[in-house]
Nucleic acid binder design. Structure first.
Lengths: 336, 336
DNA sequence: CTGAAAGCGCTTACAG
DNA sequence: CTGAAAGCGCTTACAG
């Protein structure tokens, strides 16, 4: 059933039907009502293809994720951010075109293809990196995008910021108040912007509190590297009394590694995780962690993107800070 | 850049360009080469909208997932199955339209909308339920689909089976060989088809081995219900010496609940988990579990769907059985 | 307020 | 083998 069918049934032209259906002026209220009723009766739905062709609007948004399936699977973050995005798109009947890619280069190719094929009106970009090639590329394409982690909007690119500073201040503050001095961190991969931001925030907060400089070891978010990093930290001359982990897998691996090294958590070592996991509560000890509302985060990104598509200038959006959930893996440091 | 531009540059008609670009007969080899070269130089990409409109093929596949974001996030299953689907779609430039929905009814609405708007050529359907309304609906719509868990293909619906029988036989066999007699299970929600299949398989295998009838408690995949179910099982008159859990969250919650009830795992209680999780290896004790290649599973589903879209009859596909990974949470039962 | 027409970028019979 | 034309289902100036 097409607008032609409706036009015939209503005895008007296709143009009038189109105006009526899209809520545009150019038809009398009476005619509009009649057309809408007929469309409803006939069960008409717009053909996205036809709309896209005359409109050059696809009413679809792209989201490509560049991580190994194993990592994507283990971290709730990705599904949660998608859930947030969906909560904004679905009610507006905007489709989410989703693609998993091997790396950022493949991601850029996906954008190019989507744009050239006019598959999507814009994209959501995740995990901003240092010197991220995607930013320049999207700018050059003039492709609307909302970028999670971008510090400031530019051109057609909206920025959805998260405040790593607050997160780190909370964690360091909590540990410092417990009496910890030697605080280390098993950080995520260096290539991510947020890793660098966290490092800056952590060092700043520790300096502000007069604590000795933190030892920071980088790992790639895998349990193996986190295990190795933890063992190395604990084997040092002046081992830390507290370790912060940048992800859930790394924190759980770290807890296990600490046990394997003969350190009781939290009596001899405190552990704080960054990021959400339904498992934190179930471990022994349950892990103290900073958690954020990732669903809300995704929703803001989607809204920022739709805003650009509606013709407004790209915005810089802040998101609610993570909150520290104190469980059983942090305690005053052991004195010996 | 459109085929018009190419036609002009090549001095031929749009029709010839279309034939050349699509590898159809009707152009000389020489002309075809020239057209392809020009298309390449000009960086031409087909407009999906235009193609869809004349072809009524969208070259997109839909996937709706009906679970709470929390559950979707915690189980690697979903991302893994998507990864498998993508591995088949991406190389063919077929888009994945993804949607999260609240329940099966919302999912059916999503299908109806996609189909009416001609957004997708077919869908992937996950988590078949008992008396699943989606099957009848898709059949009535005549919408091509690959359904994970459907026992047998019908009409335009391909079936991607998994063999719960093998999984259960492996688990029960392992526990029986260790000497367990009283084996219980904290099962997933009753509404899922695979829950019922597992129950049938478990009962069958235990009967075959002459073991007493299993106690099976249903939970909704949440840690709370699994904790309660575990406590209830362990408080009974003749408590089980081994418990099988239908999901990762439930298994981890069960492990903790067992500890809280004063049961040492595996000395006093053996635990087996169904499903993959990167955390199993990191727990203490590490969890014995049956794991399947969910990525391969997703890939088969996608291939089965593309097969239907290519005009072939819907197939019934089997998938590799899960394999039992024996870790540290299973041991011979405690004698007292 | 309404109708007739052109156009979006393709595909596909239909003539030559 | 090639060109001219109609059509897919919409939107949107342009006349009346």
């Amino acid at each position: 059933v097409t607008i032609n069918d409706i036009a015939r049934a209503a005895g008007v032209s296709k143009g009038s039907v189109s105006f009526a259906l899209n809520g545009q002026p150019g038809v009398s209220a009476e005619t509009r009502e009649r057309i809408l009723a007929i469309a409803r009766d006939l069960g008409w739905r717009p053909s996205t293809a036809a709309r896209a062709l005359s409109n050059s609007e696809s009413r679809a948004v792209g989201f490509a994720l560049a991580r190994s399936p194993a990592l994507l699977g283990s971290e709730p973050y990705f599904m949660q951010i998608i859930a947030g995005v969906e909560s904004v798109l679905a009610p507006r009947s905007i489709a989410l075109v989703f693609q998993m890619v091997d790396d950022v280069d493949a991601e850029v190719l996906a954008y190019e293809q989507w744009w050239a094929e006019r598959r999507v009106d814009g994209v959501l970009v995740n995990d901003l990196r240092l010197n991220d090639p995607r930013v320049a590329y999207l700018q050059q394409l003039g492709m609307p995008a909302a970028i999670f982690g971008l510090p400031r909007a530019r051109g057609t690119l909206a920025a959805v910021r998260f405040d790593e500073m607050v997160t780190m201040r909370e964690i360091v503050g909590h540990l410092a108040e417990l009496g910890h001095q030697r605080i280390a961190r098993v950080a995520g991969s260096r290539k991510f912007k947020h890793t660098a931001l966290r490092t800056r925030a952590m060092r700043g907060e520790m300096e502000r509190r007069g604590l000795p400089e933190a030892t920071i070891v980088h790992a790639d978010f895998s349990d193996e590297e986190s295990t190795a990093a933890t063992a190395k930290l604990l084997a040092g001359a002046a081992p830390p009394t507290a370790i912060i982990y940048d992800s859930d897998i790394m924190a759980v691996a770290g807890l296990r590694a600490a046990n394997d090294c003969g350190r009781l958590v939290p009596a001899e070592l405190s552990i704080v995780a960054i990021g959400n996991s339904p498992f934190y509560d179930l471990l022994q000890p349950a892990l103290t962690a900073t958690e954020r509302d990732v669903v809300a985060f995704g929703a803001r990104g989607a809204r920022a993107l739709l805003d650009i598509l509606a013709g407004n200038p790209a915005q810089t959006i802040s998101t609610p800070a993570a909150r520290l959930v104190i469980r059983a893996s942090t305690a005053p440091p052991h004195r010996d």
